[in-house]
């Protein structure tokens, strides 16, 4: 039955958000007082270490010419409570309930494969690599629902340049965090973990492909793929891997999770394409999330409406064959 569970915590018991967000300020204040009292400045770093940003923390962002205009944004509530993140449960509401267990700090991204030299990037360094941009993108799930999400990040290409891939590298693979003790729900499926996704190099270098750290101007909630994920707006959502821990450069197509699971249903390219049906349902239309049931249905656009920018990547390719 779908009737909602009553909230477990009465709203009267919830700390107001400003006080909650300021709890570190309080601790830091207490810590500074101790520092003054002890006359030991270095103690400040010990008592109040540099704590990584966590979900809800504001990010400093700049505008981007690559943002999508003319769309009504999907609500924060829907974006953060209707998720596919099977490592935290296969039901749409499970990731929001369970992903709190994901340890987003410390966090590093390992880069290896066909690169000049393998490297490991710290999340704090990646956050500072380029100015973070506000990018509104349509998000089309292969299950035929869609959202409009204001992401925060910068072009994946900027990061790839730092990785120094060899010219022989033709594909890039993204591997998601996986710890079966943390993500115990993953084992209720017969999927082979960790989650793996991949792009062709020219796709990954396209400026629309986003290395993403936040949404709605704040740090990504865990269920949305914290602390770092990929967003490829012209492809079905599952191509946009969450909670990335490794990036690997290859000269052949990497194994990808859903393609391995069902080759006939989830192609490696998986560009949004209203003319190529999923074997089990039509992709001609989609259901916009957050609308009443009678107003959800809308037409799906080729390349999710980003054809002007990305269609040239696929010149001469039979998109029915390479779906």
């Amino acid at each position: 039955m779908f009737i909602g569970k009553p909230p477990e915590i009465p709203s009267s018991a919830i700390t107001p958000k400003d006080q909650y967000l300021n709890r570190r300020g309080f601790l830091r204040g207490a810590a500074s007082a101790a520092v003054v009292a002890l006359g030991a400045e270095r103690l400040a770093e010990v008592l109040s270490p540099r704590v990584g940003a966590q979900a809800g923390t504001k990010l400093e962002t700049v505008k981007s010419p690559l943002t999508t205009s003319g769309e009504t944004l999907t609500s924060v509530k829907d974006i953060t409570s209707y998720n596919n993140f099977y490592e935290f449960g296969v039901d749409k509401d499970q990731p929001a309930q369970n992903a709190g267990r994901l340890p987003t700090r410390p966090w590093t991204v390992r880069v290896d494969g066909m690169v000049k030299k393998p490297k490991t990037f710290d999340i704090e360094a990646l956050l500072k690599l380029r100015p973070l941009e506000d990018r509104i993108y349509r998000h089309r799930c292969v299950e035929a629902w869609s959202m409009v999400i204001p992401w925060v990040g910068y072009s994946l290409a900027e990061f790839i340049k730092q990785c120094e891939p060899l010219s022989s590298a033709k594909y890039v693979q993204f591997l998601s965090y996986y710890d079966k003790k943390v993500e115990k729900w993953a084992s209720s499926t017969s999927i082979f973990w960790p989650y793996s996704e991949g792009l062709r190099m020219d796709e990954a270098m396209h400026p629309l492909a986003l290395l993403t750290f936040g949404l709605y101007g704040e740090v990504l909630p865990n269920q949305n793929g914290a602390p770092i994920r990929i967003v490829v707006p012209w492809k079905y959502g599952f191509k946009s891997a969450k909670s990335i821990v490794a990036v690997r450069f290859l000269d052949k197509v990497p194994p990808t999770t859903w393609n391995d699971q069902a080759r006939s249903e989830y192609g490696f390219y998986s560009n949004v394409n209203p003319n190529v049906d999923h074997p089990r349902w039509s992709q001609k239309t989609e259901r916009r999330i957050g609308q009443p049931f009678y107003a959800q249905r809308r037409t799906t656009l080729m390349f999710n409406g980003y054809g002007d920018q990305v269609a040239s990547l696929y010149n001469g390719m039979d998109l029915r064959k390479y779906f």
């Binding site: 039955m1 779908f2 959800q296 249905r297």
Partner: peptide
């Protein structure tokens, strides 16, 4: 009960993020 809950949810626009899927699944 179930159909009552669906009608109630539809009237109050409270059928979750994807009401079509909610109705179908329920």
């Amino acid at each position: 009960w179930q159909v009552g809950a669906l009608v109630w949810g539809a009237v109050n626009n409270n059928l979750g993020a994807d009401p079509t899927a909610t109705i179908t699944f329920a």
